[in-house]
């Protein structure tokens, strides 16, 4: 079994995890136009946390996450289901994509949409599911 406490691994992880998470959000948001999307971004983020798990162990990872990964998966599923509903408000069939273009001061116009919400749901579900599996396996190991 891997030994937590390897200096090189832990130092690298401290630097890499934020970058990986940032990268995963980047992949998530650009997914609609360029390669990326919720699945890929979720896998990238999970890989980051798993690296952290290898470097610091289960307890530290759980402390970092703060939330039980099963709840992350649940939140993701809920969000995905909720994203089906705005269509009903506008009288469209369920899951019809809805787009909003609010403009914010300084930033300018941004594109919000129900598919984006859905993709975030996918993202969270993938992270939650992957981490549930890996953390339970790692716990069984310890």
């Amino acid at each position: 079994m891997m030994q937590p406490g390897s200096l090189i691994l832990s130092t690298m992880t401290r630097l890499l995890l934020p970058l990986q998470l940032l990268f995963s959000v980047f992949m998530l948001l650009r997914g609609h136009d360029l390669p990326g999307g919720g699945f890929i971004a979720g896998l990238v983020a999970s890989a980051g946390f798993i690296l952290y798990l290898f470097a610091f162990g289960v307890a530290a990872t759980q402390a970092l996450l703060r939330i039980d990964p099963r709840e992350i998966a649940g939140a993701g599923l809920t969000l995905a289901v909720l994203s089906a509903l705005p269509a009903l408000l506008y009288g469209d069939p369920v899951f019809t994509a809805q787009w909003w273009h609010p403009s914010l001061p300084l930033i300018g116009e941004i594109k919000l949409s129900s598919p984006l919400l859905f993709d975030i749901g996918v993202y969270l579900t993938v992270i939650g599911s992957m981490l549930t599996i890996v953390i339970s396996l790692a716990e069984a190991e310890e």
């Binding site: 997914g31 999307g37 579900t125």
Partner: peptide, 27 residues
């Protein structure tokens, strides 16, 4: 669908219901 990445558009828009089923399976 306002998206240039067709794969992603299929996943989150055209076939969103399928994807919903898939992420439930994942969970």
């Amino acid at each position: 669908a306002h998206g240039h990445n067709v794969v992603n558009v299929i996943i989150v828009d055209y076939r969103a219901l399928d994807t919903l089923g898939e992420i439930f399976v994942v969970a």
